[in-house]
Design a protein around this nucleic acid. Structure first.
Lengths: 148, 148
DNA sequence: TTGAATTCATCCTTTTTTGTCTTAAATTAG
DNA sequence: CTAATTTAAGACAAAAAAGGATGAATTCAA
């Protein structure tokens, strides 16, 4: 996979969050997505600091999206988790690879990076919501956060 | 970088090896490329087991390519270091992503993977030899293994 | 107001990757 | 045959990632 597992967990969690402004518990998210709970909690905290999520603690608290899901791009989440320069650099890690000393994969990889970058800035969390990210055996279960 | 650092080290070392069948010391390779010596030695051993390199120990020993450099593809080295399935899987790590449940980046990433895979099987170590992989300040130094 | 339940936030293990070191085995030269 | 050289193989250490356990803060009800 191109991104870290933490980034994948973050994207899955964001896609599972409801869009109506109701709060969702980290525990319910991890249970619904079958992700390690404490690790996901730590990732969610990072998304709070990146001003993608909002958190409230105490009863009736939890996490919720700070913006509507179609205003959060996949690229934004990747940058929040992996830094702004994660896609820079040579595909093989050659320090001398550059415009004047290109490696054999430089051009192909450059085109690829541009295409992926474009796709990432165009795709939003709303696009992710359209696919069912839970495992098949749990697809029939209730959504992570039910309304009253 | 798309690959692991170990894979990058392996590719750099292979590109630095001479093509005339002479042996090269692991110590000289790591010094010339400014790579951690013992770690590179371990990687070279793996390349021997993958039947990409040949090793002989004792005085006048060292490592050398088992085949001419244009018969060793980059993809072969990547597979030897990272396994045959390193490029499979969803770009975001979604377990349910597939032909019937594609993620928003599925198609773009699929095209990209195919292009990179093709480039990797076409590019050989000889192509890497054409670029100078040592740091600029050392570019004027002697090659890692000089002939008698 | 007080306390108890709930929930996020912070710190502590485990695992993987990366990097180092030591010892043994093999080859060559004298 | 001895000594010097060099890889092979293993244990060992450090860093990062992944996962887990505990504590601090908030809410609500009595």
């Amino acid at each position: 996979m191109l991104f870290s597992t933490a980034t994948g967990y973050a994207l899955r969690a964001l896609a599972a969050l409801p869009e109506d402004g109701s709060f969702c518990l980290a525990k319910d998210l991890s249970a619904s997505l079958e992700l390690p709970g404490p690790y996901l909690a730590k990732i969610l905290q990072g998304l709070v600091q990146a001003e993608i999520l909002e958190s409230v603690r105490g009863p009736k608290g939890g996490f919720r999206l700070l913006r509507p899901s179609h205003r959060i791009t996949v690229g934004e989440v990747v940058i929040a988790l992996e830094g702004p320069n994660s896609m820079d650099g040579c595909i093989m890690g050659f320090p001398t690879c550059g415009g004047d000393h290109p490696c054999p994969l430089h051009e192909a990889w450059g085109a690829v990076k541009a295409q992926v970058a474009t796709s990432m800035t165009e795709a939003t969390i709303r696009d992710l919501q359209l696919m069912d990210l839970r495992h098949q055996k749990d697809a029939k279960d209730r959504p992570p956060c039910e309304k009253p």
